[in-house]
Design a binder for these strands. Structure first.
Length: 844
RNA sequence: GCCCGCUUGGUGGAAUGGUAGACACAACAGACUUAAAAUCUGUCGGCCUACGGUCGUGCCAGUUCGAGUCUGGCAGCGGGCACCA
């Protein structure tokens, strides 16, 4: 028996044995437990952030299997997306081949980490066997009124002549061309997620095992607001501007009306007004992202038109076209009350508009003031609270037929059209006669052509010589295929269902899906808290509406792991550098290759686009899978972000060897032990070890159930330290040692599957440890017979007292006062606080 | 800008409102060794008059017998903001 653990030999041996035994093939017998980690984008290499995510899932999957569940633990690839097209443009490689090569590499890396995936269920979203079903779902959405077409804006790069993603717009300019980006209107496909706003909001109540922060973020995203629509007739014109407001109470403080540059009325006004056209064009030169709109300088165009105030006959308000008003929210028009809204305040200050306060705070508060208070300067609302004034203002508006109460949502419909090649084709044909015609289901899938080129700007599907030219399925006349593809978020909005029946001829086998779903434990990065998770929830409800199943929520429990972050580096030319390309010297960072200076940027979540990734493969190569897994688990709690450092991996490697030695060096001591035959008596030290053994089972079971996985590892280490210090003297000690070692190996197995598999065999077992049962603690050994009571004087710790848990309060009091005598110095007792089993506090 | 988080020794972190720093990493000292590696032992928040005391969980206030933990405010850092995934 070698003293040092040979991870290379051992890990390879057992991975092969597991595969030959099809150990991780899903079984269907109940009870079921579905463990799912968010599927990765195949960017090329597995980095430590991925490895952390999957290790967390693997611990749970193995643990649940040992607890007797049939575990579904699948893995797949979110294989469509922009990076493949960028690779095609840069290196001339086909997006498909690039993606498949990456998948092959990453799959190999995943396998070396020893995860318990059922690879028979692997999904590639870029495979026609997957996206055919997505196209069927799209057609069902269309039939059920969930998919529809409307016009909407995209980022347009006028130099490249193509649509850019938000990520490709940097400071308002195209990332490759550097040209200022325009917002351009295109006709695109949308999913009617807004029909489900209230349901999505209400059903968060069902998600009791989701982190509060995620539910809060989703609720804020859906953004239900109660308020009013208010009509402002234009003075001297027929038109009426309708605004949405959540603050009808502040109508008497209104000093202007702002409408979005994209508002139909603004477009109408601009028709014979070149100055206004220029202004609108300027507004549209902002990108489409919310952040850009919010942080851009407030700008307005005075139309010189005025509107009538709903309550005051003699009051009119100027009508501005304002860049901070968005068309997608409410009516695309607001009334500005500068005294009580910061954006309106900025705007009014800039254009010297009146700022009339109408809500008085109880305390001195600077303007703009958004809090509670009493109305003044407000005619019939004077003296009312904000809440009451809202109701009364709405009531009055309704009475005068100038407005109505209204609840609206910030959530917008989901635009799913992408003007790109590497995505799921939208199964639609545009016929000059019949209009929009769905591709008949028996002609699915609409597959992507392989012979595409990326030498021209724009969508390769659009300028493919033949692909889009088809005949109309309805009338047979010449027609055109839709050349837009689906947003890749669509692919990941239903994959969890496909895993339940990966080869079913229908998109989803209702029987299988309903037997496995909702996912018992979903694990992934907190960065997906809103979009991916909300889209998946929407899909689940939309699929129910289309009759796919009777399921309302996809993920029962959600665990959001924190991000693994790393410093970012750029060279002199501004190109991103990988950490391994950078060397740290006394006076700064240099590029290893040529010694030129390197600039360190802020620490960010690991992502391929910024090169700040640490590949997992190197660690596995140098230290093995188990050490890597142990390190990723032990260093920080899963839900917390952490800054990556290499320091500490050595410590994990040492622990692995320690475990190996601990068990193998005692094998000869315990060979004769039969764990079925419990000795009648134990020595005191053996009894203490038994108690720790069972206490450890209890703690670790709890740690895994609650995802305190760093505590899990700490408790394993504590337990090993205790076993290490245990000296054999009697025969019954051997039994206790054998029990402790066996349980140690079992408890370590979800984290360290290879090492524990070898030790399990050494301990004389012929099955795989994955097939063994998770240990159950003996309740009589877990009970505490002596409590360490903390003694305090005025809340400060002054000592401890060992007492029996059954001791009475009076008895305790006497004992405590006696023990603390030196600290009391004869002061009279004011209060005695006793929290059984915890603390006794003497207040003097 | 808006929404959501996070902040504890040199470092990662532990702590159902009840002994702050478990378990590790790094460092230092020692044992073993011809030597190295490996392994083992010890020290390891600051200050003080040091077998004791005192301060200490980003900053300021509050609630409480008692606050790292709860409440309010501030600062710094991170995530998301609808076409990165």
């Amino acid at each position: 028996m070698s003293v040092r653990y040979n991870f290379r030999e051992n890990e390879e041996k057992w991975q092969k044995a597991w595969e030959e035994a099809s150990l991780y093939k899903t079984t269907e017998d109940p009870p079921h437990f579905y463990v799912l980690e968010m599927l990765p984008y195949p960017s090329g290499r597995l980095h430590v952030g991925h490895a952390r995510n999957y290790t967390i899932g693997d611990v749970l999957a193995r643990y649940k299997h040992m607890c007797g569940y049939s575990v579904l633990h699948p893995m797949g690839w979110d294989a469509f997306g922009l990076p493949a097209e960028n690779a095609a443009i840069q290196h001339g490689i086909s997006p498909r081949l690039w993606t498949l090569e990456n998948i092959q590499l990453m799959k190999q890396e995943l396998k070396t980490l020893g995860f318990s995936y059922d690879w028979d269920r692997e999904i590639l979203t870029c495979s026609p066997t997957y996206y055919a079903h997505e196209q069927k779902i799209f057609l069902d959405f269309l039939k059920n009124g969930i998919a529809y077409r409307k016009e909407s804006f995209v980022n347009w790069d006028p130099v490249e002549g193509s649509v850019l993603a938000n990520e490709q717009v940097i400071d308002g300019k195209g990332w490759r061309s550097g040209a200022p980006i325009e917002r351009r209107k295109l006709s695109q496909w949308f999913f009617k997620i807004t029909d489900f706003s209230q349901q999505l909001l209400d059903d968060t109540a069902l998600l009791d095992q989701w982190p509060e922060q995620v539910k809060t973020m989703q609720a804020n995203w859906i953004g239900r607001s109660e308020g009013a629509f208010v009509q402002f007739p234009l003075v001297g014109k027929e038109d009426v501007i309708e605004v949405f407001t959540t603050r009808p109470d502040t109508l008497f403080g209104a000093s202007f009306i702002g409408i979005s540059p994209d508002h139909p009325f603004a477009e109408m006004l601009s028709q014979d007004n070149p100055t206004l056209q220029t202004f609108i064009a300027e507004c549209r030169s902002q990108g489409t992202s919310q952040k850009e709109i919010d942080t851009a300088e407030k700008k307005g165009y005075n139309t010189n038109l005025t509107v009538q105030h709903p309550f005051l006959e003699n009051k009119t308000l100027p009508l501005y076209i304002a860049n901070f008003v968005v068309m997608d929210y409410g009516t695309g028009a607001i009334f500005g009350c500068p005294a009580h809204d910061p954006r309106d305040f900025d705007f009014a200050t800039k254009y010297k508009l009146p700022i009339l306060p109408v809500v008085k705070s109880t305390k001195e508060a600077p303007l703009p003031y958004e809090g509670e208070g009493t109305l003044y300067n407000s005619n019939f609302l004077d003296g009312l609270s904000v809440e009451d004034a809202k109701l009364k203002a709405i009531h009055k508006l309704e009475e005068k037929d100038r407005g109505t109460s209204k609840t609206i949502y910030k959530l917008r419909d989901w635009g799913v059209s992408r003007q790109r090649y590497w995505g799921c084709p939208i199964p639609i044909i545009h016929c000059p006669t019949c209009g929009v015609v769905p591709v008949p289901e028996n002609q699915l899938p609409v597959t992507l052509p392989e012979d595409v080129t990326f030498d021209k700007p724009g969508n390769p599907l659009d300028h493919h010589p033949t692909w889009k030219y088809v005949s109309c399925p309805t009338c047979g006349e010449a027609a055109l295929r839709e050349t837009d593809t689906l947003d890749t978020f669509v692919d990941s909005s239903w994959y969890f269902a496909r895993y339940c029946s990966p080869s079913s001829p229908e998109p989803i086998s209702r029987e299988k899906a309903e037997s496995w779903l909702p996912v018992n434990q979903y694990i992934g990065g907190i960065e997906h808290a809103i979009l991916h998770l909300l889209y998946s929830r929407f899909f689940t409800k939309a699929l129910r509406q289309c009759g796919y199943w009777n399921l309302s929520e996809p993920f029962k429990n959600l665990m959001t792991q924190g991000m693994v972050c790393h410093e970012t580096y750029k060279d002199q030319g501004g190109s991103w550098l990988y950490p391994y390309e950078v060397e740290r010297q006394k006076d700064g960072l240099i590029k290893k290759e040529d010694g030129t200076p390197v600039y360190a940027g802020r620490s960010e979540k690991m992502s391929k686009s910024k090169c700040n990734v640490v590949p997992a493969a190197k660690m596995v190569e140098d230290y093995g899978a188990d050490t890597t897994r142990l390190f990723l688990l032990s260093d920080s709690p899963p839900e917390r972000d952490f800054e990556w450092t290499d320091a500490g991996i050595e410590g994990s490697w040492r622990y692995l060897n320690k475990l190996w030695r601990l068990v193998t060096s005692h094998l000869s001591d315990i060979t004769m032990v039969n764990l079925e035959e419990i000795p009648v008596t134990f020595t005191e030290k053996a009894f203490q070890l038994r108690k720790l053994t069972h206490k450890t089972i209890e703690r670790i079971t709890h740690d895994i159930e609650t995802f305190h996985l760093n505590a899990y590892i700490a408790h394993l280490r504590e337990f090993s330290n205790a076993i290490e210090g245990f000296q054999l003297s009697e025969d019954s000690d051997r039994w206790v040692l054998c029990e402790a070692l066996t349980i140690l190996v079992l408890l370590a197995s979800p984290a360290l599957p290879h090492l524990t598999e070898a030790l399990w065999e050494e301990l004389g077992h012929s099955d795989f440890i994955y097939q063994a049962s998770w240990p159950i603690p003996d309740p009589s050994l877990v009970q505490q017979d002596i409590i360490k009571l903390v003694l305090q004087v005025n809340g400060k710790m002054r000592g401890t007292l060992d007492v029996s848990p059954s001791i009475g309060e009076e008895e305790i009091k006497a004992l405590v006062l006696e023990t603390l005598k030196p600290h009391l110095q004869g002061h009279p007792l004011k209060k005695f606080i006793y929290i059984p089993q915890k603390v006794a506090n003497v207040v003097i």
